[in-house]
Structures are given as structure tokens and as C-alpha cells.
């Protein structure tokens, strides 16, 4: 939705502000959140950018927030800020799919470098997520009958066979086929199969 933003979640306003200042000095756009709960009200699956997350916070902890985001299917890359005693916890988070962690006290520019790496990583992810989103949107435009015909096409069947199986005229199949290609913005069955491949095993139909 919005551009790549670094979300900073830390209970200490000074630390938040300083980090924002630091990132701004390297032209990284950032947004501050005072607690995990605040961020959770905002977070969704379509976010792009990265998340700088303090492990130790009053209320919901950083780790807990991380788990909640995974559950919400928010794939935002997460960089944990850990104190001395929290390293094992951060390592575990890393195994669970966090992007990185950095131990306090940290080298500030190294932190920024990690943020930049995370942002770059997220650009690709966001692009793929965007195309998946558009394919899904295109699929949603297909009628029920068009979807049925599309499945037959993807199965590699000839128009005649499709007409026979669905009990419709061959002419009708050809009309549907041209509609499908138009709506999915593809020129061939091969291209159609490619863009649907982005969805993985999750096509629009229930097959």
C-alpha cells in the first residue's frame, strides 16, 4: 500500500526518537510506535519495509509481537534489538524466521546497514506479493463458467474436448477463451499458466 517504511517499536521515546533521527540521517523513512499493541492495531499483510523491534518492553514483548505478526501472515522482515541477556531468545527468533538481531549497545551505522538490507530484501517480497495480489484480483473478475473453462485449458485440453466435457458448443468455448485471456491480460495458455504459478498451489478455484 504505502512505500517501504521502517517501523520502530520501542517503549523508550528517546531511543525511538534517536533511531528515527539516525535513520533519517541515512535517508531511511521511519515510523515510531510506542508499544507492540499500538503497532498490532496498524499491522496487516500488505505492509512493506521492515520492523526494528525491541525485545524487552513492558506489556507485550517483542518476541510475542513477532509471533502475533506471523500468525497474521505479516511477512515484514524483523530486526530485533536485544539487551545482553536476551541473545538466546533472539537466536530462537532468528530460527523462527526473523531477519536479524543486533545487540545493545550497537554500532549505529551497522544497524542502519542491516535496516537497508532488510528493506532491499523486502522490496522483492513486496513485488511478488503485489503480483500475486493482481493475479488474484484478475481471477476474481472471471465468471464461474470462465473459471471452469480456464481449468480445462490449464489441463492442456483442446477446445473440442472442453466443449464435449462441459456439454457446450465449441464456439462458446472459443468465446470464453478469448474473454479469459483478455481479463487475465495474457496472450497464450503458457503465459496464463505462468502467472497462475505465482499463486503456487493456491488457485482461485476450489480444485
Amino acid at each position: 500500500m504505502s512505500g517501504p517504511t521502517t517501523h520502530i517499536v520501542d517503549d523508550d521515546p528517546a531511543v525511538r526518537d534517536a533511531l528515527q533521527w539516525l535513520l533519517k540521517s541515512r535517508s531511511v523513512q521511519s515510523q515510531n510506535w510506542g508499544s507492540a499493541e499500538d503497532f498490532l492495531t496498524f499491522a496487516g499483510s500488505g505492509l512493506c519495509g521492515c520492523l526494528l523491534l525491541d525485545v524487552r518492553m513492558p506489556g507485550m514483548s517483542g518476541i510475542e509481537l513477532f509471533d502475533r505478526l506471523r500468525a497474521l501472515n505479516c511477512r515484514l522482515p524483523v530486526i530485533f534489538l536485544t539487551g545482553h541477556g536476551d541473545v538466546p531468545m533472539a537466536v530462537q527468533a532468528l530460527k523462527d524466521g526473523a531477519f536479524d538481531f543486533i545487540e545493545k549497545p550497537y554500532d549505529d551505522n551497522a544497524l542502519v546497514d542491516k535496516v537497508l538490507a532488510a528493506l532491499e530484501h523486502d522490496v522483492k517480497r513486496c513485488a511478488r506479493e503485489d503480483s500475486i495480489l493482481s493475479v488474484q484480483r484478475k481471477l476474481e473478475q472471471l465468471t464461474q463458467r470462465e473459471q471452469e473453462v480456464m481449468h480445462q485449458i490449464l489441463a492442456g485440453k483442446l477446445n473440442k474436448v472442453i466443449a464435449d466435457e462441459l456439454g457446450i458448443a465449441m464456439r462458446t468455448v472459443e468465446v470464453h477463451r478469448s474473454h479469459i485471456f483478455e481479463k487475465m491480460q495474457v496472450r497464450s495458455a503458457v503465459e496464463l499458466s505462468q502467472i497462475l504459478g505465482l499463486l503456487g498451489n493456491k488457485p482461485g478455484a476450489e480444485d
Partner: peptide, 28 residues
């Protein structure tokens, strides 16, 4: 000790970040 360290770590981390940021800006 850990709680004291945390208490101290916070402002120190902030100072470090401000200074680094300032340095970055001045370099530019």
C-alpha cells in the same frame, strides 16, 4: 545489575544514535 544496565543502556543507546545520525548528516 541487569535492570541497572538496562536503565543506563537506554540513554546511552539514544546518545549514540543521535551522535551517529548527526555525524552522518554533517558528513553529507
Amino acid at each position: 545489575a541487569s535492570s541497572i544496565a538496562h536503565e543506563l543502556n537506554q540513554p546511552l543507546a539514544a546518545i549514540s544514535s543521535y551522535c551517529t545520525g548527526a555525524a552522518n548528516l554533517l558528513r553529507n
